[in-house]
Simulated assay, not measured.
Amino acid sequence: MGTTILIVDDEADIRNMIAIYLKNEGYGVLEAADAHEAFGVLEESPVDLIILDVMMPGMSGVEACMTIRQSYDMPIIFLSAKSEDLDKIHGLASGAEDYVTKPFNPLELMARVKSQLRRYKMTSGNSEPSHLLEKGDLTVNERTNEVTVGGREVRLTPKEFHILSLLLRNQGQVFSIEQIYEAVWKEPFFKSDSTVMVHITNIRDKIEENPKKPFYVKTVWGVGYKA
C-alpha cells in the first residue's frame, strides 16, 4: 500500500499545487478545505502525513493539530504566512513536526515531506503502541477507552477521558484552559466558563492518590495544566 498525504488548506489553488507535486513523487493525495472536513477524512482513510494550514476559518490549524494528536501520531507539517519565531514555537508546541512559511518553494516542501516520512518510519517500528499512554502507574488505552492506576480500573466520563488523553499524549506541554476546552469540546471558549476546571478536579479525584498534591495532572499557575 502506498503512502497517502492529507492536504488541509482553505485555498483550493494551494491544495491543487501541492497535490501536483506530491502526485509527481508517487504519493496518494487526500484533500480537505477545513479542520472539520479533515477529521472526517481521517476517520475514513489511513493517512501517513498531514500538511496543515495554520490560518483557516473556523478551527485554526493549531487547534486542529491538538485535536488530531489525541488519536493520531503521523507527522504534521504546518503551512503559514506567519514567520515570526514565536509563531513557529507555538505551532511546533501544539504537536507538529515541521513548519513551512508561505510563500514556499514546493521543492523544499517535498524535501521536508520525505524527511518527515523517513523519520516516522524509522521510529514507529520501535515505539510503544500509539494507543497506550502512560505516566507512572497511570495507563490510558485510547483504543478501548480504559484507564487504570496501579492496575485499578478508573471510570471517566468521555470528556474527562479526552482531557486526560490530550495531556498525556503531550506530556510536559502546558495547555491553557482555553486550549483544552476548544480541543475537547470543539467550540469557542468563554472566559467565564469554569467547565475545564471542574473536569480537572473530577479527574484528579479519580486518579490521584492525593488530589491536593497531584502527580499526574499538574497546575502551572497562571498558564494552565500539564501531565
Results as ranks from 00 to 15, higher is better:
Thr195Ala: 15
Leu109Lys: 03
Thr101Met: 06
Val62Phe: 01
Ala111Asp: 11
Ala227Asp: 03
Ser165Lys: 04
Lys213Asp: 12
Lys212Ser: 10
Met17Tyr: 05
Met74Asp: 02
Glu31Trp: 07
Lys226Cys: 08
Glu84Ala: 10
Ser127Tyr: 08
Trp221Arg: 13
Gly151Phe: 09
Val198Met: 12
Ala81Tyr: 06
Val140Ala: 05
Glu25Gln: 13
Leu30Glu: 13
Ser71His: 15
Trp221Ser: 12
Ser127Glu: 14
His90Ser: 07
Ala81Ser: 12
Arg118Val: 00
Asn210Leu: 09
Lys218Ala: 04
Gly150Met: 06
Arg15Asp: 07
Ser45Arg: 15
Gln116Trp: 00
Lys159Gln: 09
Ser176Thr: 15
Lys212Tyr: 10
Glu44Val: 14
Ala111Val: 11
Thr101Val: 13
Glu142Ala: 11
Phe104His: 04
Leu168Asp: 01
Gly40Glu: 15
Tyr99Asp: 02
Phe175Ala: 03
Leu30Asp: 09
Leu166Met: 12
Ser194His: 14
Ser165Tyr: 03
Asp53Asn: 06
Arg152Asn: 09
Asp98Glu: 12
Ala32Thr: 03
Thr201Cys: 04
Leu86Val: 10
Lys226Ile: 07
Lys226Arg: 09
Lys212Phe: 05
Met55Lys: 11
Gly28Asp: 06
Leu138Asp: 02
Tyr225Arg: 01
Asn24Glu: 12
Ser165Arg: 05
Ile77Arg: 00
Val140Glu: 02
His36Asn: 13
Lys191Met: 14
Leu92Val: 08
Val8Asp: 00
Lys218His: 06
Asn141Cys: 08
Ile76Cys: 01
Glu108Gly: 06
Lys114His: 08
Phe161Lys: 04
Asn105Leu: 15
Leu109Ile: 09
Leu168Asn: 00
Phe78Asp: 01
Ile20Tyr: 14
Leu168His: 02
Leu109Arg: 04
Ile177Leu: 13
Lys191Thr: 15
Asn105Lys: 15
Glu128His: 14
Leu133Met: 09
Asn24Arg: 11
Pro103Leu: 08
Ser94Ala: 13
Glu11Ala: 11
Met197Leu: 11
Pro103Met: 06
Leu138Phe: 08
Gly61Asn: 05
Leu30Lys: 13
Val41His: 10
Ile76Val: 10
Glu134Lys: 10
Asn126Asp: 07
Tyr216Gln: 04
Leu166Glu: 00
Gly58Phe: 05
Lys82Glu: 03
Glu128Leu: 14
Val100Pro: 01
Glu182Asp: 07
Asp53Phe: 02
Ile68Trp: 00
Lys114Asn: 05
Val54Asp: 02
Val8Ile: 11
Thr4Tyr: 04
Thr144Met: 11
Ile89Gln: 05
Phe104Arg: 03
Gln171His: 08
Pro75Cys: 06
Asn145His: 14
Leu117Asp: 00
